[in-house]
Design a binder for these strands. Structure first.
Lengths: 339, 339
DNA sequence: CTGTTAGCGCCTTCAA
DNA sequence: TTGAAGGCGCTAACAG
């Protein structure tokens, strides 16, 4: 059907090897022949079959990217940036959307990327078995989430510092009843919610504020979950005057819940998010900003470097800067408290 | 390094052909042998090399998905849904993020998907040359954007009807100065902005409202662009009392601009969006809802069907339902008009 | 600088 | 029901 390397070779009157060398820019081909080959290849619309060349060379020029939810802003943004780095370097991206436990399980048992990719970027946090499965691929591994783990290059942020800056901000404003909307750690083996929770507890403790379990609710890292969680918190006998949400999407859900209850941020309740979602500014959300796209790009670059220099010891952990962005959803508590 | 089909064959004491047949569930293998092969394969962690099998069979079990901006909510959501359909059916997804003209050009000249995919789902609208390039791949083609085009199955919405419902809603509320924030059609060869504009002009005409060019501004389909566009409109000698934005992201930018000008929707200006973005509800945005994920899923399904039934004539155009969702950013104009 | 010779790992006839 | 042989299209030695 489509032209093969032999068609080109025949048309030019050289051997297939020469065509192969010429088209891949390898040395050992006269300029004259190289030009003729390029011309004929273009005219025939020849593109080397990736299957055949990777079978022969062992290189796939493909990167596997594992994502929990492509549609979620954070992951979409990381993926976008990473893909650009990969494609610029001549690599294709094989995308695996592993949101549900079933797809995830199927992926890790069948491991369809085996012999198919030169490296893997995981935007989800593999548990120990999954990590081992990925390591068994024998290719460079990186992730933008979770803590350090053997065999992986991790590009991330200081979750503790980020959380501390958010909660301290609320404390400094004078809040004493500070709630938290966290994300389920559930099947994701995600340490982020836990680390952020610990930091939250520590800041409360250092401020001499007693922790109240009724001030914590799970928001599942979604807008809807955030709304539910805020609704829960508002139903407490003594609701919080401020809330730290572990993600902007949950914070936005919280804002929606407030609106539904005819309450306002920051007048009735202050709200801080985490991420600096592209729409955080639209709703005026105070939040902890992290460089999302940059994390994806950096992880991609580190992976490519490992591919280029197979010998070198890759960096284990790269920390990106975070900063608190003050907007309009936080203020001192009302003199008399809500209501 | 990793186990090959021969390793499995040897370990079981059968030939490679039998292993191949057994593992792919083809007939002609006794149950007893099949079970033994399955066991050994699992134990050895054997996965067939995709490169080798597609080289031999001609099937890649891979779908190419072309996306202009993975990080944009609309595309991320479509991709998410499509990927789920593909992976459930046993296909992998090769992702191409073709936002910039350069990446796009490189993609269409080199066409790296040649011989690499069984089908292509394009979330961007190819121009005529690009369409021809894709057709030259000789695989089923689908898209979720733009109008009907030869060789493609199109899953979309009725842009005209959607726009009409939005603009008529504003007219019915009593607005006469109705602005529009549109998206650049620029290098994307996107007919959507044009169709929506035509529908907008038609509704104005049918309502006997004279069109005022100063009431149109370009928002580039981004939040920032929407903000700029709204700012522009507000600077007009007679600013609009209502604005139709061609996407929710631009509408949200418009809301931000209003806030910056200490104006409110709908008190000072009514705003309608298009898409029903997941956060539209958070900001109370009235909008034209379209089934975004469903479009991706449906397009994916239609592509798979073409792969299953190579003979059948694929549907050319599938229309998905839209509906106007009334929220809190639209209301009748103020008795005296703004200011 | 160029051609020849072997595979890469699997699937698909065709025989048995 | 199974095995043997050949080839998918390309790349990597090795010659020349």
């Amino acid at each position: 059907m489509t032209a093969s390397i032999n068609d080109v070779a025949q048309a030019v009157g050289v051997s297939a090897s020469t065509v192969s060398r010429a088209l891949r820019g390898r040395p050992g081909v006269s300029d004259e022949v190289r030009d003729r080959i390029a011309a004929v290849a273009a005219q025939l619309g020849y593109t080397a079959s990736r299957s055949a060349s990777s079978l022969a060379s062992g290189r796939t020029y493909t990167i596997g990217v594992l994502v929990p939810y492509v549609g979620r802003w954070f992951f979409g943004t990381v993926l976008d940036a990473a893909e650009k780095v990969f494609s610029t370097a001549g690599y294709d991206v094989l995308l695996y959307n592993l949101g549900s436990p079933e797809t995830r399980k199927r992926f890790f048992t069948k491991l369809p990327v085996r012999k198919r990719v030169d490296a893997v970027l995981s935007l989800l946090i593999p548990d120990d078995d999954e990590s081992a499965a990925l390591r068994s691929l024998g290719v460079p591994l990186a992730t933008t989430v979770g803590g350090t783990r053997p065999g992986f290059t991790v590009v991330g942020i200081d979750d503790r510092a980020g959380t501390e800056s958010a909660v301290r901000h609320l404390v400094n404003l004078g809040h004493r009843r500070i709630g938290m909307i966290s994300g389920a750690s559930g099947p994701l083996h995600w340490t982020t919610p836990i680390e952020r929770r610990n930091a939250y507890l520590d800041v409360l403790a250092e401020a001499g504020i007693e922790h109240d379990a009724a001030l914590e609710a799970d928001g599942d890292y979604t807008v809807e979950g955030g709304e539910r969680a805020m609704t829960e918190l508002l139903a407490a006998s003594r609701p919080p005057t401020a809330v730290f949400a572990q993600s902007d999407e949950m914070a936005m859900g919280a804002l929606r819940a407030l609106r539904r209850h005819r309450l306002k941020a920051p007048d009735d309740v202050s709200v801080v998010g985490f991420d600096d979602h592209e729409l955080a500014d639209v709703v005026g959300l105070t939040t902890v900003a992290q460089p999302v796209a940059e994390q994806g790009a950096e992880a991609a670059r580190l992976l490519l470097r490992q591919l280029d220099e197979p010998g070198a010891e890759p960096p284990r952990h790269v920390q990106m800067p975070i900063r608190l962005v003050l907007r309009e959803t936080t203020a001192p508590p009302r003199p008399r408290g809500p209501q």
